[in-house]
Design a protein around this nucleic acid. Structure first.
Lengths: 114, 114
DNA sequence: CTGTATCCAGGATGATACTG
DNA sequence: CAGTATCATCCTGGATACAG
């Protein structure tokens, strides 16, 4: 049942894996959701919205989302610097699904804490 | 920007986090999808469907899904033993979203490998 | 303000052996 | 067949300091 690790085996569920990797991780879901709610957020604003995230993880997560073409990064070359983040078109395609997931989560939480 | 870790801060996105934790992890997405495709699968069948998973991770993942009430476990007390896994009603509610995610993944993969 | 760079701890996962 | 147990390893994410 075991050989070596593969990045993405050619099974029918490969795309499930692919997608999960792109939105998995500790903060990606929330960041995408906040960007959906606010359209545009600056680096510091995002940091304040995600409780207790470190600058390291905030930057790292944003870089990954950017690399996967889910988030746009717009730099204003001013002093002090200003950077705005927003969803790309591809990123926006994920919103219906995150929305669905959020509703499901709400329902489950409600069931658990009556 | 940092105090201490909380399990689930009372923010509007709490439920996004909640949901992601329940379907995150390396194998949960695929296992839920396979159970959706086949309705009922035995332990060994699942193991064969998920490439390279170890018995440890298969058992552990199934136990978590069971605990979160996403998967049903039916034991037949025979020799040799037989255990069947299937989606619960709550688990089935996640299928539309995994389905959406899968289609999105397929599209992205297609774009990347033309 | 918007990050980078290190170093490190802890959790998640892997390898392997064994059992009812 | 369907697991459990143990030990090893990897890798995510946390703490902290510093920079343009």
């Amino acid at each position: 049942m075991k050989k070596t690790q593969k990045e993405c085996p050619d099974t029918p569920t490969c795309s499930v894996d692919y997608a999960f990797k792109r939105i998995g991780g500790k903060y990606k879901g929330r960041i995408l959701w906040y960007l959906h709610e606010h359209m545009i957020l600056r680096y510091g604003e995002l940091g304040r919205k995600v409780p207790d995230i470190t600058t390291k993880m905030l930057t790292q997560t944003l870089r990954e989302l950017e690399k996967d073409n889910l988030v746009d990064r717009k730099v204003y070359h001013e002093v002090p610097p200003k950077v705005e983040y927003s969803l790309t078109e591809v990123g926006k395609e994920l919103i219906p699904f995150i929305s669905y997931l959020k509703e499901w989560g709400d329902k489950q939480i409600e069931k658990t804490n009556p």
